[in-house]
């Protein structure tokens, strides 16, 4: 039997933790396309994804889940639509401790909603940091409707990442039931 593949996309602003998120759950080392940061204002980390991150989870003998992390910098957004094609759903990661990226997160979320009518969840990443915004405050800051799931997350924790993906899958099932 031919192996089926399905994909989910992990998106979010620059440095929100997408590569780490995929890395935490993927059974293979993430195929990352990282380059050294060239501009001073974006130097909150040393490297950034320029094409995509690629992780994999084997579900069973004939089903594989691929996780694609999008590049966070706007100048690579030509990749977003390509990555969004045929996705089961998407996760928007937000760095809870960097309010200067919230607007960008909102804009990315709206862009992806326009690309595909698939379910999504928002993960409030880096909740372990002292200055992380509370999930409820973040919901207001991002102007998310109550029905959109917003989940606390620390992308280095496999359990947290698993929980975010499961919540997304439950949303996908719920939407299918509504259909």
């Amino acid at each position: 039997m031919q192996t089926q593949t399905v994909k989910m996309v992990v998106t979010g602003p620059f440095s929100s933790g997408k590569t780490q998120f995929v890395q935490s759950i993927s059974e293979i080392d993430v195929v990352a396309t990282e380059r050294t940061i060239s501009t001073e204002e974006e130097r909150v980390k040393d490297q950034t994804t320029v094409a995509m991150d690629f992780g994999r989870i084997t579900i069973d003998d004939d089903l594989i889940l691929y996780l694609f992390g999008t590049p966070g910098q706007r100048r690579f957004d030509f990749m977003w639509e390509i990555l969004a094609q045929g996705m089961l759903g998407f996760v928007v990661l937000v760095d809870s401790a960097r309010p200067e990226t919230f607007r960008e997160a909102q804009s990315i979320l709206e862009t992806f909603r326009a690309y595909a009518p698939t379910p999504y969840v928002v993960a409030a990443n880096k909740q372990d940091l002292d200055d992380a915004w509370a999930v409820d405050d973040l919901r207001v800051a991002l102007r998310l409707d109550d029905e959109i799931k917003m989940l606390p997350c620390v992308a280095t924790s496999q359990e947290d990442v698993k929980n975010v993906l499961l919540e997304l899958l439950y949303s996908i099932l719920e939407e299918m039931e509504l259909d």
């Binding site: 399905v6 759950i25 989870i57 579900i59 069973d60 889940l65 698993k162 899958l169 439950y170 299918m176």
Partner: peptide, 12 residues
Amino acid sequence: NVVRIINRLQSI
């Protein structure tokens, strides 16, 4: 497929 993925993830 979704149910199978859920089951798999839950086992991780």
